[in-house]
Every structure is written in structure tokens, then in C-alpha cells.
């Protein structure tokens, strides 16, 4: 590598996104840092409204403006400073170097073009090949995602949900992007279909050495295909680290709450321990730690100061001021 990028495909510093609407300012993302190495997969976990989609859109510089306002200290993809790019240059890298799979496969496809044309469009645009060549490559892509190439001439409505999502994946991967942002790619699908799609994404990622950010609210999916995890709450990352650290040595009370809310497949009699209360309104965030009102460990101090991410060890960081106390620990059983 000649580029000066410290071996990182993605580096983001202090990303802030707010939506200035008629009703007030929605603070969707409030200063997050992300670092992602080549061929790594980061799971971005959080509940509805945590700001996951907004973060992904900001990385592609696709946040709708108005009402969205993005501030960022550093946004480098593969060593290139995206912040300085004009819209032509952005169009060039979108779909080619970095591409996104959107949340809803049903609306991501244009109903008036065949799926073959839609895959070919992106190839034609970025690789400057002829239309016939692009269509041939589109057929290859379809086969890659497990759809016979004979169906390239079908329209999206002739496909089932799972197949549409495969087409969307084919479009996203058509130009071998280095970074793939997958925004809840399987939420709309059934479990058995979800399993197929996840397996496919896993295979393709290996094959093309793609780095990936997997946005989801399902910790099970994270466990399955991610190397690293970042847990988001109210526009901030509250805990991040390697999969093993976050899952087996959970530190943040919110992460603990998420785990405790899930029914345990092994011990069906175990009572669920939900997080009390509700997610704060991003238009009206509480002072201090946004999770404090719902947190069983919160003290007066938590409501005063916004906690910053602090390293526990080199592969694990948590944003909770209680860890300033030397013997503070959460209740969740530490797994072996």
C-alpha cells in the first residue's frame, strides 16, 4: 500500500448529523468515530432511531440536505479525503469504491426496468464498458447471487422478497466495491431466507476481500458475520470492540440490557429483563449520558456529563463514567 491510510479502509472522526426540521432539531448522530481495517466487518447495532441509517448515509455523503446538516472532522475512505470531493467525483466512487444495500429491498429497485438492466447500469457507469458487455456481466452477477441468468429480463415485481434482496446485493457488488454498507439487509426477510442471504454475503465478502459495515438491530446476525461491533444509542457509540470482547465481556449497561431483553434459547424459563422506559427523543436529548434515565447503574453524575469512549484494553472501548470507579462492574455473567 502506497496510500497513507494506516491500513484503514475507513476512518471517520467526530461525525455529527442533525436534521433541522420545522418541529426542531433532530440530533441524529452526535459525534462518532469509526475505524475499519481492510477485509474487516463491523456490526453497527442499535434500536430504531439510534442513527444507524443516518451514519451510513453520511459516509456516502447522501444525507438529504435540507433538512440534514453534516459536520465531520475527518472522513477518509481508502486514504482519500471524501470531504473535499465535488459531486462528480462522489458519483464516481459511489457504487464503485463504496456501495450501499438499503433497508427495504421492495423500494430499492426501479419497477420499470428489468433487473438485468439495473445491474448493468451501475457497471456501465463505472467501468465504461459497452451495454452488451455490461449486460453480460449483469448475468454473471445474478448467477453469483444464486439467480439463473435467464431471469435477467424479468421485472422486480416478478421476484420474491428474498430474490429482490439478492438483486440489490448484486447491484451493490457489481463493481467490486472495497467497502460495502449493508443497512439491515435481511430485516424484511424470513429466517430461512435470511440465512441464505447472510451466507451469500459472507461468501462474497471472502471472495472479493470486501470490507463491510453491517447495520442491524439483531445481535444474532452480528454474532454470525461480524468481526467488530459498535453499539449505538441516541446517536453515539456507547461500546465498541471486537466481537468476542463485546459479546463475552460486555461493559456498557445498554449492551447488557439488549442481551437481557432477548429470550434465551437455552434456558427457556429464564425471565426476560427488559430495559425499562423508552429511547429518548432525539429532538430533546437528556443532558449527560443519554442512557442514564433508563440505566439501573446511573448516578447523579451520569446525568451531568456526556461520557466519552474510553479504552478498556486495546480492542475494547466503552462510554460510561462509572468505569472511572475502579471496582465497578455490570451484572451480566461474563461468559468463558
Amino acid at each position: 500500500m502506497t496510500k497513507n491510510n494506516n491500513g484503514l479502509i475507513l476512518e471517520v472522526n467526530n461525525l455529527v448529523v442533525r436534521y433541522e426540521t420545522m418541529d426542531g432539531i433532530v440530533r441524529a448522530v452526535n459525534g462518532i468515530d469509526l475505524k475499519l481495517g481492510y477485509k474487516r466487518t463491523l456490526g453497527l447495532v442499535g434500536e430504531t432511531g439510534a442513527g444507524k441509517t443516518t451514519t451510513a448515509l453520511a459516509l456516502l455523503r447522501l444525507v438529504p440536505d435540507p433538512p440534514g446538516i453534516v459536520e465531520c472532522e475527518k472522513l477518509e475512505i481508502d486514504g482519500e479525503n471524501i470531504l473535499t470531493f465535488d459531486s462528480d467525483k462522489l458519483d464516481q466512487i459511489r457504487g464503485k469504491d463504496i456501495s450501499m444495500i438499503f433497508q427495504d429491498p421492495m423500494t430499492a429497485l426501479n419497477p420499470v426496468y428489468t433487473v438485468g438492466e439495473q445491474i448493468a447500469e451501475s457497471i456501465e457507469l463505472h467501468e465504461h464498458v459497452s451495454k452488451t458487455e455490461a449486460l453480460k456481466r449483469a448475468g454473471d452477477m445474478l448467477e453469483l447471487v444464486g439467480i439463473p441468468r435467464s431471469r435477467a429480463n424479468d421485472y422486480p415485481h416478478q421476484f420474491s422478497g428474498g430474490m429482490k434482496q439478492r438483486v440489490v446485493i448484486a447491484i451493490a457488488l457489481a463493481c467490486n466495491p472495497q467497502l460495502l454498507l449493508a443497512d439491515e439487509p435481511t430485516t424484511a426477510l424470513d429466517v430461512t431466507i435470511q440465512a441464505q442471504v447472510l451466507e451469500l454475503m459472507h461468501e462474497l465478502k471472502e471472495k472479493y476481500n470486501t470490507s463491510m459495515i453491517m447495520i442491524t438491530h439483531d445481535l444474532g446476525i452480528v454474532a454470525e458475520i461480524c468481526d467488530e461491533v459498535a453499539v449505538m444509542y441516541a446517536g453515539r457509540i456507547v461500546e465498541e470492540g471486537t466481537l468476542e470482547k463485546v459479546f463475552n465481556h460486555t461493559k456498557h449497561p445498554y449492551t447488557e440490557g439488549l442481551f437481557n431483553s432477548l429470550p434465551n434459547v437455552k434456558d427457556r424459563k429464564a425471565k426476560l429483563k427488559p430495559i425499562k422506559g423508552l429511547m429518548p427523543d432525539p429532538m430533546d436529548l437528556p443532558p449527560g449520558c443519554a442512557f442514564a434515565p433508563r440505566c439501573d447503574y446511573a448516578t447523579e453524575a451520569c446525568t451531568q456529563k456526556v461520557p466519552t469512549l474510553t479504552s478498556i484494553d486495546e480492542a475494547h472501548r466503552v462510554a460510561c463514567i462509572r468505569y472511572d470507579e475502579p471496582d465497578f462492574h455490570i451484572e451480566r455473567r461474563i461468559l468463558s
Binding site: 422506559g277 430533546d284 442514564a292 434515565p293 447503574y297 446511573a298 448516578t299 447523579e300 451520569c302 446525568t303
Partner: peptide, 17 residues
């Protein structure tokens, strides 16, 4: 262990609604 007062929560909630 919780010190975040009930009152504060109530206030925030009413504001929200």
C-alpha cells in the same frame, strides 16, 4: 442504586407527549 429521580423522568415524559 438508581439515583435518577422519578420526577425528572416524569417531566421528560410529559414534555415528550
Amino acid at each position: 442504586m438508581t439515583t435518577y429521580t422519578q420526577v425528572q423522568k416524569q417531566q421528560r415524559a410529559t414534555k415528550r407527549y
